[in-house]
Design a protein around this nucleic acid. Structure first.
Lengths: 342, 342
DNA sequence: GCTAGTTACGTCAGCGCTGACGTCAGCGCT
DNA sequence: AGCGCTGACGTCAGCGCTGACGTAACTAGC
């Protein structure tokens, strides 16, 4: 009678068969009710629902998944949850998924290929409908293969389209162009760019850099290589980047940053060094995280609707499941002008 | 021959039986190899592993879960992913989980009881070993019942202990006490507290408030009710709170905030109003998010090791699974003194 | 009144895996 | 030789569910 070391064992969950027996129908009928498939009288339905309630029946999703060979779940594979881009995106994904009755798997890879693979394999094993992936560097090709062989994939912040794979991103290049244009129209002559070291190593051209160059060229300005600076994607990266920019013989009067984290780091260091922002140096960030509005001066940024991006990604997964392909999408961005670059 | 609208169908995954046939052994033997259960010769093992590789076999985790009645997954149920507390905690959970070979489910409730329930039910259905939960307000009792009946639960930032349930939090009250003590020892006489409206409504006494009161009493100071201000848990809450504090006939010379988000909002508004921080007003936050170090002046805060908290939570889930109970834990905190309250 | 169609169920197999147990060869030992 | 034991497998059932199909009752229509 003594409880074992696991303490009181939780009661076994009621099964379809238990409910069926309790009501006096077949398990198949209970299943139909649980899945709202109709084909039974209102009275049977009510009796079954009552029994479900009474017995505390809860469907075994593993059994259902095994039988249907799919589990009504979607996977989200991030690179870094600490990146400020992530939470709002994940929130959009979660909401959209839960609106569809899907549960969400989450994994984080740290940008490591091996972890990305094992996360995806595990998700396949769990029967996810598809996965939304922030791809580790140089893995888009792998993902295309994986999608073709295994399951639908939506890639975030890149551009792909193929069998069971597509991508969602923001109009990053256009956003960068808008940002730099804004700086130039504000009379700035020397605009530095603080770009993410990791992203620049990617095979595909860095879209922020393209936008930056385009904007400069449109004004007849050739980019000064000394003003294009690779930094870590962090506050500290921004700080270091600012120092580096100002160490140039011909220092910049404006700064375009890869994202807000870098921009904020740069802004902080600038203030620290007694540089007046925006008078001496205008700064524009990217993504428009909430903290932009907490800075003094507030940070001008390119707004990316990350929540919407997440929702769209989920929607695209659905289409991918149903149609096998879906056009990749790019959501518009918006320049939010604040005091750091008025 | 035409592809259907789903495009090329992904090849069915190889099963244990496929591998078994390919090698000429029984599925049970393959299973033993896959699960490292020994009991077969090195040669058989190698041949099976080769076949697994060749056929691209990947275990069906739903089938395994159905058979074992548990799925090697853990659940994380958050209230708000946008809360800066979350990402680092989730990262700790994810890493610890993946180190144990567990995959992670993620849900977010927005503090809503119904969503919390449905998230947990779904997780039970998926056979999670246990769930780590940021409880919605007034739901700890429900969770205790749920844990007793259904599955192990670790509650974050609260104190419970029972059958298949326990909690992990930081030494919040002590941290608050340290923070306020620090302000008082720095010569501050009137310390305001900006507390989270939602948390204060909770039945259990707000630990930050207790710490705050204790610190004041220890110095023989009775708290001024006008200086205890309920605010929203957001930047804007901090801004509004600062205004409210300064509207008092006898305004504060220091501010203790519920968390860094609120502290940063208050700091920003203070600077905006031309109040010198820390000269006119010292500010201390809570949690020590990275942005504390990006503010000018940098924000003094009470460091909570959220990553560690996440890891511990996972570890406690394991113990709960194995032992049925585990003592609740509180991790130490540390006052990080920076310029906002030197 | 008989067929055809519809409704409301039931039956059955099987999704892929593992726990429990069975079998058989080989070995050491008396 | 005969015994028991061990190691290396195999057999089988069943986890809980759903797809495919079967069936009985009832309705509609001529």
């Amino acid at each position: 009678m003594a409880a074992n070391r696991n303490g009181p064992t939780p009661p076994e969950n009621a099964t379809l068969a238990d409910v069926a027996e309790h009501v006096g129908v077949s398990a198949r009928t209970v299943s139909r009710v649980v899945n709202n498939q109709g084909g039974c009288t209102a009275e049977t339905r009510d009796r079954i629902l009552a029994a479900i309630d009474e017995l505390g029946y809860r469907p075994n999703l593993m059994a259902r998944g095994l039988s249907k060979r799919r589990s009504d779940t979607i996977g989200l594979v991030s690179i870094a949850m600490l990146d400020p881009f992530f939470p709002e995106f994940a929130d959009g994904v979660e909401r959209a998924a839960s609106d569809l009755g899907r549960t969400m798997f989450l994994a984080s890879t740290g940008g490591d290929l091996v972890r990305q693979q094992s996360a995806l394999k595990s998700m396949v094993g769990h029967g996810v409908e598809g996965a939304i992936v922030f791809p580790a560097a140089h893995t888009v090709g792998d993902l295309v293969d994986f999608a073709a062989k295994e399951m639908p994939i939506i890639i975030v912040n890149d551009d792909v389209q193929g069998v069971r794979i597509s991508s969602v991103s923001a109009e990053i290049q256009a956003g960068a162009e808008m940002a730099v244009n804004h700086l130039l129209r504000g009379g700035r002559k020397r605009v530095a760019a603080l770009l993410d070291r990791g992203a620049r190593n990617a095979p595909r051209p860095a879209r922020r850099e393209l936008g930056y160059r385009n904007a400069l060229e449109a004004e007849g300005l050739g980019p000064d290589q000394h003003l294009i600076i690779d930094v870590d994607n962090s506050l500290e990266g921004g700080r270091v980047g600012l120092d580096e920019a100002l160490a140039q013989p011909n220092p910049p009067d404006a700064l375009f940053a890869y994202n807000d984290l870098i921009a904020i780091g740069a802004l902080q260091r600038a203030l620290d060094r007694g540089i007046s922002v925006p008078d001496d140096l205008a700064i524009v960030g990217f993504d428009d995280i909430e903290m932009c509005q907490a800075m003094t001066p507030m940070l001008t940024s390119v707004r990316v609707d990350r929540d919407q991006l997440g929702r769209v990604a989920v929607d695209m997964i659905r289409t991918l499941v149903e149609e096998g392909s879906v056009p990749s999408r790019r959501l518009p961005v918006e320049l939010v002008v604040r005091a750091s670059a008025p």
